[in-house]
Design a protein around this nucleic acid. Structure first.
Length: 440
RNA sequence: CGGAGCAUAGCGCAGCCCGGUAGCGCAUCUGCUUUGGGAGCAGAGGGUCGCAGGUUCAAAUCCUGCUGCUCCGACCA
């Protein structure tokens, strides 16, 4: 993409309402624009990041055997009356009337709908286990939206729903998602720690929040420091091997880890003092087993192998991609701007033409741009008339992991500079070497 | 939902107390000079002063109502 033809409204000054660093940087980098309280338009650069996050989520969900569908944002109130949640949900639910005065709502989640869908088609244990997921916009009319897309009213959510014949099967489904989440966050360059979460009236230990540590996190968390050194499960993990999955989950749940609501000072005290980690955290995922909470009111039953009807056991598994964008910035930035992990960067490489109009520089840039693009790399070519200093600032602000600086000085020696955003390191290489290093 | 505050150009702000035909910085456009870490000079464009009423010869400014937004607390992917 040539910057001169792109839409990248950079702000040099910060809108006053932006209070935390991710919100400030997202506005300054031209990723989002607020349209209303807690409601944002995703501008091209922000959308690229959001899409990359969703792509990783999809790959890891699919790897477990989960199946993607897409359910609507607008739901009928009748569905929610069936589960009893229409009255329970309160003012957080955005209620709408259509032209026929029918009660509708903008979905805050999809348990009811997915249960109803499965009820219509699944009648036998042979159709289980089943995990259906979608990535769809949700709306929760928060009392006080804040922090940009980190706590917005409209937000994107990947929500998966598992269906199993019994609690044991549901546990396996839960473990699949647990392992998938470890891999998903790891691929985004995040160290997410599964922490015990409140399970509500159902009890048990089958609910975990996935927390990443960041100084601006909103809740206090306590965990064993060894979590930070643990390696994520490999890509070829066998999701059908229940015992193997269980051992991975055990490995990630044995050491102490809890948010402040579930904090047990005594248990934390038992962690060796030099391994005790108290920090602030951001919740980026939440997985939950809730048994027959919805299948019972909806009457979702299947015939078992013995010919008797059984209520299906469910779990749900959420990740907030739009929140993740903000969380990743909170976890990875410096004074100059965002530092994207390679896997989600809006563009892998920036080419900075430090002297637009200089034939040799223009030519070298155009050549690199064409070759890298042809090899499948996402490249943002800054071909504008801006001054060099301004281009450096922009590239650092939007956080491109690799920057190729092409200017008359180094080009006179047949070199360009290859700069790594994360540590600012640079080296002089030939354009051909730069291409070899960065090609897809 | 309780408490506080803000609303003037794309962004950040001044002007309001004390009414008199709207200003600064950044950004944008033009020209010249610059040219490797957000350049300099000169010029230009851009505003129903959130909305609606009221007071007044005259309202960004005073009064009333409304709307939007932000921050602090309790709730949440």
């Amino acid at each position: 993409m040539r910057l001169s033809r792109y839409f990248l409204p950079i702000l040099r000054e910060v809108p006053k309402e932006a209070d935390i660093v991710s919100h400030r940087l997202m506005l300054r980098a031209g990723m989002i624009r607020q349209e209303s309280a807690g409601i944002y338009a995703w501008l091209p650069l922000g959308l690229r990041v959001l899409n990359k996050i969703c792509a990783i989520i999809r790959e890891e969900q699919n790897r477990t055997g989960a199946v993607e569908l897409l359910m609507p944002t607008i739901q009928s109130a009748d569905l929610w009356r069936e589960s009893g949640r229409y009255d329970d949900y309160g003012k957080e639910m955005l209620r709408i009337k259509d032209r026929h005065e029918r009660d509708m709502l903008f979905g805050p989640t999809n348990e009811e709908m997915v249960t109803e869908i499965v009820r219509g088609s699944v009648k036998s244990y042979k159709n289980l286990p089943l995990n259906l997921y979608h990535i769809q916009w949700k709306f929760r009319d928060e009392v006080r939206p804040r922090f940009g897309v980190y706590r917005s009213r409209e937000f994107l959510m990947k929500d998966a729903y598992s269906f199993d014949l019994d609690a044991e099967g549901a546990r396996h489904s839960y473990n699949k998602m647990f392992v998938a989440y470890l891999r998903t966050f790891s691929r985004m360059g995040l160290k997410a720690i599964p922490m015990v979460a409140d399970t509500g009236p159902i009890g048990g230990n089958l609910s975990h929040e996935f927390i990443i540590l960041a100084s601006t996190g909103e809740s206090e968390v306590f965990c064993h420091g060894d979590y930070l050194d643990m390696a994520p499960p490999p890509a070829d993990v066998n999701f059908d091997a229940a015992a193997g999955l269980q051992s991975i989950v055990d490995q990630w749940t044995t050491l102490y880890a809890a948010t402040e609501e579930k904090h047990d000072a005594a248990a934390f005290g038992a962690v060796p003092a030099d391994r005790q980690l108290a920090a602030r955290g951001i919740e980026v995922g939440h997985i939950f087993y809730f048994g027959t909470k919805y299948t019972e009111p909806f009457g979702l039953k299947v015939l078992g192998p013995d010919g008797t009807e059984r209520l299906v056991h469910m779990g749900s598994y959420g990740i907030g991609p739009s929140r993740l964008v903000a969380a990743m910035i909170e976890a990875s930035h410096d004074e100059a701007g965002i530092i994207w992990p390679d896997a989600v960067a809006p563009f892998q490489v920036g080419i900075l033409n430090l002297k637009a109009g200089d034939a040799a520089v223009d030519g070298a840039c155009a050549d690199l741009y064409a070759k890298l693009t042809a090899s499948g790399v996402d490249v943002l070519y800054d071909d504008t008339e801006e001054r060099a200093g301004s281009k450096f600032a922009t590239a650092d602000l939007i956080g491109l992991p690799w920057q190729i600086l092409v200017g008359p000085k180094s080009l006179a020696d047949g070199k360009v500079e290859l700069k790594r955003r994360v540590d600012g390191s640079r080296e002089l290489v030939t354009p051909a070497e730069a291409f070899e290093r960065l090609k897809g």
